[in-house]
Amino acid sequence: MQRIEKYNLKNKAQLLVSLLLVLFFSSCEDVVTLDLETGPPRIVVDAEIIWKKGTTGNEQIIKISKTAPYYNNTTPKVSGAQVKVQNSNGDVFTFNETEPGSYVCTNFVPVLNMNYVLSVQAEGQSFTAAEKLTSVTPIDKVEQNIIKDFGGKDTIELTFYYKDPADEENYYLTDYKSEFLIFPQYSLMYDQFFNGNVVNTKFSDEDMKAGNTVEITHRGISKNFYNYMNLILEASSANPFSVVPGNIRGNIVNTDTSDSNNFALGYFRLCEADKVSYLVK
C-alpha cells in the first residue's frame, strides 16, 4: 500500500465556473459584488531551487511579490530587493533582478544533501529561511493504458515508475502540465508503506487524448515541505466558497521584528527533480 495524495485544481475551476453561470442566469439584472475583508499586504517569497537531472542547475530564479485584494487582476511585484543564498561551505550566490519581482542567479552550484540559507531584504524588512537540497530517484518508464471512468467512458491513464531508496524516509511532489490542463495537477507521496520498492504513480484526465504532450516533473522534497504543500493543496481543492482557517505559514522568517504576525508567505525549498515529456498515443 502506498500513501498518495492527488489534487486536481481543474475540478475546482470547473465547479467555480458552473456556480458562476448559475448565478449569472438566475439574476441577469443585478451585479453583486461581495464586500470581502482585506488584510494588510504581505510579502510572498516563491523560492524553489530545482535541479533537473541532466542539467547543471546553475540558473535558478526566485520570485517576490505581495498579496493583493481578491478582485485585483494583477499581482504586485516587489522590486529592488536584495536576494542571496549561502551554502554550508560559505559560498554565496547572488540573485539579480532581471524583471520586476524576478531574481535570477546564473552561477548557482547545487549539491545534494547540502544545507542552504536564503536571505532576502525587501521593502525595509529582512527575511531568512534554511533548507537542504533533497535528492530524487529517476523515472524508469512511463506506460499508457485505457481505463473506464466512473461513467463507463474510456479514459487514457498514464503510469510512471521509479525505485524508492531503501532504509530511508522519502517524500515526493509531482506535477503534471499539458495543453488540456487549466492548472497543473499535483500528487504528494511519502514512502511509509513502500520503502525500498518500485513505486507506480497514475495520472488520468477525461480531456487527455492522443497527440497531447504531458510534462511530468517528479521532485524529492523535505518532510517539512511535504507537510506545508499538503495543507496548501488541501485548501485549494476544498469548497471554493469556504474560508481557509488561517494563513498557512512557510519557513520564511522575518528577522527584523518580534511581532509574530509580521511574517512573509511562501517557502524556500531545494529539490532535485526528474522531468519526462510523454507524447500520448
Score class of each variant (00 low, 15 high):
Y103R: 08
P165Y: 06
F108L: 05
F150N: 13
N115C: 09
S135W: 10
D154S: 11
L158R: 01
S102K: 10
T106I: 11
K177C: 02
V109R: 13
N195I: 04
I156T: 10
D191I: 03
E123S: 11
N145Q: 13
D154Y: 07
T106N: 15
E99K: 11
D167K: 07
I146H: 04
L112N: 12
T94S: 11
D175Q: 11
N96D: 14
E99I: 03
V104W: 02
N195C: 06
V104Y: 02
A166M: 04
E97F: 04
T128H: 07
A129V: 06
T134Q: 12
M189F: 10
N197F: 01
S178R: 02
A130F: 04
F95V: 02
I182C: 05
F183L: 09
F180Q: 09
A166K: 13
V111E: 11
S187Y: 04
Y161E: 01
G151C: 03
E131N: 13
S126H: 13
P110N: 08
V111F: 06
D167C: 03
Y103C: 05
Y161D: 02
P100Y: 01
Q125Y: 05
A130E: 13
T137Q: 14
C105T: 02
L173M: 12
E123I: 01
M114A: 14
Q121P: 02
C105S: 11
Q185A: 14
T98N: 03
V117C: 10
Q185M: 14
F108I: 09
A130M: 11
M189W: 09
K177R: 14
F108Q: 05
V142Q: 00
T155W: 02
F93L: 07
D140T: 13
N107T: 13
N113R: 11
C105A: 12
E143T: 15
Y161I: 02
G124H: 08
D175C: 08
E97Y: 01
E179W: 07
P100N: 06
V136K: 06
L181V: 01
K177Q: 13
L112G: 12
V120N: 06
T128G: 10
Y103I: 01
V104E: 08
Q192K: 15
L173W: 11
N195K: 15
Y176G: 00
I139Q: 01
E169T: 13
D140P: 02
V104G: 00
D154N: 15
V136I: 12
P184G: 02
N96G: 05
V117K: 15
D149W: 01
K148Q: 12
A129L: 04
D164W: 00
K141A: 10
P110C: 08
D149H: 07
G152T: 07
S178L: 03
S178W: 10
L181N: 02
F95N: 02
Y161H: 06
L158W: 03
E131D: 15
Y172V: 12
Q125T: 12
F150E: 15
V109L: 08
T174W: 05
I139R: 00
F194S: 14
A130Q: 15
S178G: 09
V199Y: 01
T106W: 09
M189Q: 12
T98P: 01
V111C: 03
L112P: 09
L112K: 14
G151W: 08
Q121A: 14
P110L: 08
S187Q: 15
G152E: 06
V111K: 13
N170Q: 12
K132V: 12
Q125R: 14
P165R: 04
D167S: 11
G151L: 02
T137K: 08
